[in-house]
Write a protein that binds this DNA or RNA. Structure first.
Ligand SMILES: [Zn+2]
Ligand SMILES: [Zn+2]
Ligand SMILES: [Zn+2]
Ligand SMILES: [Zn+2]
Lengths: 158, 158
DNA sequence: GGTGATATGTTATAATATATCATTTCTTGA
DNA sequence: TCAAGAAATGATATATTATAACATATCACC
């Protein structure tokens, strides 16, 4: 068993720094501008491993004294999700930071209903099973949403 | 290849009648009341094989002259989804009728982006792969959302 | 430095969902 | 049968999530 979720006392600053570094790389590769606002929103999303809502981000920005409106947040989120730097959790209407933005992320999301954290995996067996199921019914896949709710390992044992 | 989606010219009245008959059975078995409002909402959902939003249902009810408010629709939807007669498609904020309410529906949903129809499958291989992926990371599953968007067989060939 | 493209600001509003309390309808058992 | 309690619906208000439309600012490039 390898827990996808980070350990309790882990150095989260490293998560943040690494995520930002990766985001910079992706933006550069895509010739996309990692503006102050986008960087700010991205950092806020990475403050935890939980999914955050657009309005939580808005509140956080406003708490810092910025006069930000919803469209600003949604635009940043659109930019980040389009680049695969952030994923939207459909069943939560919330967003969280991708820790492997390089991969082609037809990912699956584990969502802990106790601690609220989200972890992403790109499980080949799941992908294969989904593709096979689609093929069996003559369905041409464009996108998949696989969201699994339950208890993370920490939350089952503590 | 067995298309999950109904044929174009199929007798949809039979779909509706059968769905209502099944719903009556389920409600009776659960000792739940299939009231006029719930039956009405259920029928409206079954007017097509597409997923419909709560407010589309509300509009349809109001168009019939009823003075219905959102809570009434959401209550009916909650009742129906709790019984497994209707499923919510998270990525669409919409609802559609289950055609196999007896099974334990850890189902997967195929959503055609062209014709808008939804079809449900309960694919064991997908379920197994998801359970295995969860086990590998020590995650205890409570619920799963598997929504697959793309083109149904009809829409790829016509 | 001027110009077009991109990003953000601003205002308004659309779309989805729920909280709360009042009223009606149903069930059930004295 | 009908009174009491439970369940469902009505009604009002509001919370939450998201986008449209147009103005302004910033950036990239020549
Ligand atoms: Zn971390
Ligand atoms: Zn947890
Ligand atoms: Zn039909
Ligand atoms: Zn189709």
């Amino acid at each position: 068993m390898t827990d996808l979720f980070p350990k309790k006392g882990h150095d989260h600053d490293r998560c943040i720094d690494s995520a930002i570094a990766q985001a910079e790389k992706v933006c550069e590769a895509e010739n996309a501008r990692f503006t102050d606002m986008r960087r700010k929103v991205f950092s806020l999303i990475w403050q935890s491993h939980k999914a955050v809502t657009a309005y939580e981000l808005l509140d956080a920005l406003q708490a810092e004294g910025q006069r930000v409106q919803p469209p600003t947040v949604y635009r940043a989120l659109e930019f980040l999700t389009d680049l695969g730097l952030v994923h939207r959790i459909e069943s939560l209407n919330a967003y969280f930071g991708c820790d492997q933005p390089d991969c082609d992320h037809l990912g699956q999301y584990f969502i802990c209903t106790r601690c609220g954290r989200v972890a992403e995996t790109v499980d080949e067996d799941v992908s294969i099973a989904v593709r096979k199921a689609a093929k069996q019914v003559g369905f041409k896949i464009e996108a998949t949403t696989v969201e699994i709710k339950g208890l993370c390992h920490d939350c089952t044992t503590h």
